[in-house]
Design a protein around this nucleic acid. Structure first.
Lengths: 225, 225
DNA sequence: GTCTATATCCAGATAGAC
DNA sequence: GTCTATCTGGATATAGAC
């Protein structure tokens, strides 16, 4: 910022929020200082307080602005739910691209959980709910196993996607061999993930092999949880 | 603490560490103050500095003590690796009990990742390595699919376990129906998890059904990553 | 709306008595 | 080995000029 005095409150606030989002994502609430936000945004400390009341106010505003962005983006997704196969592919791929494009989200959510910010991110619960409902319908149609609860299935799916992006940096730096540390690593993991999930949810063909893992079949309905 | 002066360095240090572990797990490094550790442990601030040099020293000591505890517990596990079935059951169940018994670990690990503490927790890398090796062997024996890489398989397994415990509180409070909010919820998830994973990794019986998820078979060896 | 100057508080760390 | 007293820095937040 040059010699200030832009006198456009909305613009100022948005600049502050952008800087604050980056910083909060990077260092969390306790680890971020108003000074840093001030320096990164070019607005003086008192001005930030003026617009957002206090540090907590800045944080809340950041969360709100993220949710807005998220919901805006999500509203144009959720396409045809024909087969479970295409549903799962869609869900997984939209999670992947969301995580890829919004690296701050994951960190902010993690910070939030750790810092005891349990206020629900609005919209998230509903999203999960409709998602589970679609799983249930696929079970009713006999497309996938019915002995696993929709909730657990959704947890499995989220878990495999989540852990990849949560540890993305770590995987890229320390786990993958050098030649595989490129953009296609994500795609490769995605494909393997999809293949694993689809098989894990498919209806077992026969009860052959004495192994325990073919024991449950679709006729053993799980009690709803 | 009464009127101090216990003059037992080891005892004092261990008391301080215990208090510090709780606090760091709860609030992270930046969010925890020496004063709080002092108050919670009964040792004066300067005494903590005396024993651990500085705040960072306390943090490092906490991590070291946790790793010691972890390795001690883990050394008496790792039993017969006969079948993959029993291996996976063992790995998953030891992860579950570890997370259940050490709720601070998960939080500390998450804090560490967020706060940029990328120093490896000693022993962890080796553990993952031997684990992946066992997966690879099971693939060679033809017990499980070979088109998924051992690394990805281990990520899937960790992911499904991880996400459960990472969100355990949230699941218990807001997601599960009330009647299911008890200790057996963990066991139920565990069983479903196991069943899902084993089927997802099993070798497909036939190529029937036109669906895409039966396309890959064991003969399509994945290139090692 | 935005700044400078500053009050106030509390953090981590030290000095030195016991 | 442990304390009390204290230094120093940096944090949030306020006062008040422009």
């Amino acid at each position: 910022m040059t010699k200030n005095k832009i006198r456009d409150a909305e613009e100022t606030k948005s600049i502050i929020l952008k800087a604050a989002e980056t910083l909060f994502a990077e260092k969390g609430f306790a680890g971020t200082t108003l000074r840093q936000i001030s320096q990164a945004s070019g607005a003086s400390g008192p001005l930030i307080i003026f617009h957002f009341k206090d540090k907590q106010g800045v944080y809340d505003a950041v969360k709100a602005s993220i949710m807005k962005r998220y919901l805006d983006a999500d509203s144009k997704t959720h396409p045809a739910d024909d087969s479970f196969d295409s549903l799962i592919r869609h869900v997984l791929s939209s999670m992947f691209s969301f995580y890829r494009d919004n690296p701050t989200i994951m960190r902010l959510a993690n910070w939030g959980r750790l810092e005891g910010d349990y206020e629900p991110w609005p919209g998230e619960a509903e999203w999960h709910h409709t998602y589970r409902e679609q799983i249930r319908l696929a079970q009713e149609r006999g497309e996938i196993r019915s002995d696993l609860t929709p909730l657990n299935i959704s947890i499995f799916i989220c878990g495999t996607a989540h852990i990849w992006w949560e540890n993305h940096e770590h995987f890229m730096k320390h786990v993958l061999e050098e030649k595989n540390r490129n953009r296609t690593a994500d795609d490769f993991y995605f494909e393997q993930c999809l293949s694993f999930i689809l098989q894990g949810l498919s209806i077992p063909v026969t009860e052959k092999k004495g192994k325990s893992h073919a024991k449950r079949t679709a006729k053993n309905k799980a009690k709803p949880r």
